[in-house]
């Protein structure tokens, strides 16, 4: 019974095993990135950049069809261009960075949809928008795994300046010049993960596997290290459960994964040990000291 429910779908079908491997790798890298996005107050920046990846990937698609490398390279380049351009515009003008990103990403989204529609069918468009987690080929799987590996090693390298730049930027600048480099490296890791997420979950949902586990973790931990672990675990749980639900209920997989992540988040808001709403309603008697 339990076997049929949980193990059989993965044991019986190769595409489910691939989807499982892909989502787990994705969740491991994206969760920690999401935690930093949240703590750096960049959640919306992540969303904006996810959409910005689309026209680049679409141009890759236009040039060479459903070719992994062309699409990934296009996505990477477009992501970087938007990240840098939005930063430059906010520095050079009165516009705040979030506003200029909002302007950029909505244009990118429209542009991407137009480009994809020029060459592809509506099915292609659907894949671009919502991903193809059930149809990951070997190349894509390797790329997602590689991206997750690069992400975890990269974060380990820039961990100290990244944390310190959030808590105490003045102190960081007084001991080290690494703050700026770490920020750029972090943006690079963000784009890399968005390209992974784009293939599995599509441009509209890619950011979900980053942000939802991260905001979930905020309700269970007071310490960033624990938070990162919880985020990766919550993302993995959402991946496995979402795939199973989509298998048994015939729901589309990407949205199912994100919905599970969303449900976990909602439960955490209510019952999370750190500032969860239910705990706030029943705080218990105050302590003696």
């Amino acid at each position: 019974m339990l076997y049929d429910l949980i193990i059989a779908p993965f044991a019986d079908f190769e595409f489910m095993r691939r989807a499982l491997a892909g989502t787990l790798a994705l969740a491991l890298g994206a969760g920690p990135i999401g935690v930093f996005l949240m703590l750096r107050r960049m959640s919306l920046v992540g969303d904006a950049m996810a959409h910005a990846v689309l026209p680049g990937a679409a141009i890759g698609f236009l040039i060479s069809g459903l070719n992994l490398f062309a699409m990934a390279a296009g996505g990477l380049i477009a992501g970087f261009i938007v990240a840098v351009a939005a930063g430059l515009i906010s520095r050079a003008t009165q516009l705040k960075e979030d506003a200029s990103l909002a302007a950029f990403f909505i244009v990118s989204l429209a542009l991407g949809v137009v480009i994809v529609s020029m060459k592809g069918s509506n099915i292609d468009l659907l894949h671009f928008l919502f991903g193809t987690v059930l149809a990951l080929d070997n190349q894509t799987l390797v790329m997602i795994g590689l991206n997750a590996t690069v992400t975890l090693f990269g974060l380990a390298l820039i961990y100290r300046p990244l944390v310190l730049e959030c808590v105490d930027p003045g102190f960081l600048r007084s001991v080290s010049r690494a703050g700026g480099v770490a920020h750029i490296a972090f943006l690079a890791l963000l784009v890399v993960n968005l390209v992974s997420g784009f293939h599995a979950l599509g441009t509209l949902l890619a950011v979900g596997i980053m942000i939802l586990p991260a905001v979930t973790a905020r309700f269970w931990a007071r310490d960033i290290t624990t938070m990162i672990v919880i985020a990766a675990a919550a993302g993995s749980f959402a991946g496995v459960t979402g795939l199973l639900i989509s298998y048994h209920a015939g729901a589309p997989s990407g949205p199912a994964i994100i919905l599970v992540a969303g449900a976990v988040y909602a439960l955490s808001v209510l019952f999370g040990r750190v500032d969860g709403l239910v705990w706030q309603m029943f705080p218990g008697r105050h302590l003696e000291a």
Partner: peptide, 22 residues
């Protein structure tokens, strides 16, 4: 350098030990 205390984000989830070890 001891920055003014207002420059520090006290909502950031980091503990005393890690902060001092910096």
């Amino acid at each position: 350098y001891l920055p003014q205390i207002a420059d520090i984000d006290r909502t950031f989830p980091v503990n005393v030990y890690d902060m001092v070890a910096m």
